[in-house]
Simulated scan of single mutants.
Amino acid sequence: MTDHKTGTREEWLAARLELLKEEKALTRRSDELARRRQELPWVRIDKEYRFATDEGTASLTDLFAGRSQLLVHHFMFGPAYTAGCPSCSAMADGFNGSVVHLANHDVTLCAVSQAPLPKLQAFKRRMGWGFPWASSFGGDFAYDFQTSHTEEQWESGAVEYNFRAADFRPPEGEENPVLDEIASSVGTDWATYRREGPGVSAFALQDGVVYHTYSAYERGVDDLWGMYQWLDRAPLGRNESGFWWRRHDEYDSRSEPAPPSCCG
């Protein structure tokens, strides 16, 4: 017997209609925030960034691939990583289905990471992804957009991330199994892992000039996790306890749906 509150269909409907009012208000608020994002002033980018891509060396303008808008997913895959961040990987699983629709709406979606291109290509093959993925290895792009941080910045305890100074170092002498598990999943320690950070940045290209229009970090990229939008509507919600998600090829087969029985 469930310990969750139960009720009649009529009680459920009355509660659902009350919740619907709040959902509609949230939708309208979300629409307003989207409009305000688009009203942010554009900042001209004059710096010459270079990337390694499947097609060769590319500029930031090249990443637009002939379109006027560019969305960059700052994918956590540092030079010392042995695999992509599991959180970014879970997020990126939803990109393949979106990239073709965005491309046909004048928007290029591209992941950018610090790891050398061969590492990205190998992991991309492993995951079965087809979206564009560029390496910014050896350049300033990730540092300028505050998704990569130097060892000196880390040690200072004042990493610039999400528009503020933050200290990501765990308390000295304190063990944190969850942090250790996350770091070990990419073959590093926590300090090396967390010198990278997730984020999304948007750019516009007009008359040959690139403009930075928007960036978001931390919970600001939550909506890009397709699985969380589903979980928020599931009976138990996110129902999280620690680091539960994995790269899609690392789950125990018992978590996969059973095939339909031919015997009914």
Score class of each variant (00 low, 15 high):
Arg195His: 09
Lys119Ile: 00
Phe137Lys: 00
Leu71Ala: 14
Gly187Pro: 05
Asp140Phe: 04
Trp190Gln: 07
Ser241Arg: 09
His74Leu: 14
Arg195Asn: 04
Ser59Gln: 09
Ser261Gly: 14
Gly208Ala: 07
Ala25Ile: 04
Pro235Gly: 11
Ser201Arg: 11
Glu152Gln: 14
Ala204Val: 12
Pro118Ala: 03
Val112Phe: 09
His248Asn: 13
Thr188Asp: 02
Thr57Val: 12
Cys110Phe: 02
Ser148Ala: 15
Arg126Glu: 15
Trp244Ile: 14
Arg169Met: 06
Thr27Val: 10
Tyr49Gly: 00
Leu26His: 08
Ala216His: 06
Glu11Met: 05
Val221Cys: 13
Ala258Ser: 14
Asn96Pro: 01
Trp42Tyr: 07
Tyr214Phe: 15
Cys88Arg: 02
Val221Lys: 09
Glu22Val: 11
Pro132Gln: 03
Asp106Lys: 00
Leu120Phe: 04
Ser255Val: 11
Tyr193Leu: 13
Asp207Ile: 07
Val99Pro: 02
Ser215Val: 10
Ser261Arg: 15
Leu13His: 01
Phe141Glu: 03
Phe131Ile: 05
Trp154Ile: 10
Ala122Gln: 08
His74Trp: 12
Tyr251Pro: 01
His149Trp: 12
Trp245Phe: 14
Glu32Ala: 15
Phe77His: 14
Asp3Arg: 10
Leu20Asp: 06
Asp189Val: 08
Gly78Ser: 12
His101Thr: 11
Tyr217Gly: 02
Ala80Leu: 08
Val210Gly: 03
Val99Gly: 05
Val43Ile: 15
Gly7Ile: 05
Cys262Trp: 08
Arg16Ile: 00
Lys24Cys: 01
Gly56Ser: 09
Asp106His: 02
Glu181Gly: 07
Ser89Trp: 02
Val209Met: 07
Glu55Trp: 01
Gly94Pro: 03
Glu175Val: 12
Arg219Tyr: 04
Gly128Ile: 08
Lys21Tyr: 00
Ser113Glu: 05
Glu160Gln: 12
Gln121Trp: 01
Cys88Asn: 07
Thr61Tyr: 00
Phe243His: 13
Tyr217Pro: 00
Asp3Ala: 03
Arg35Pro: 00
His212Ser: 05
Ser136Leu: 04
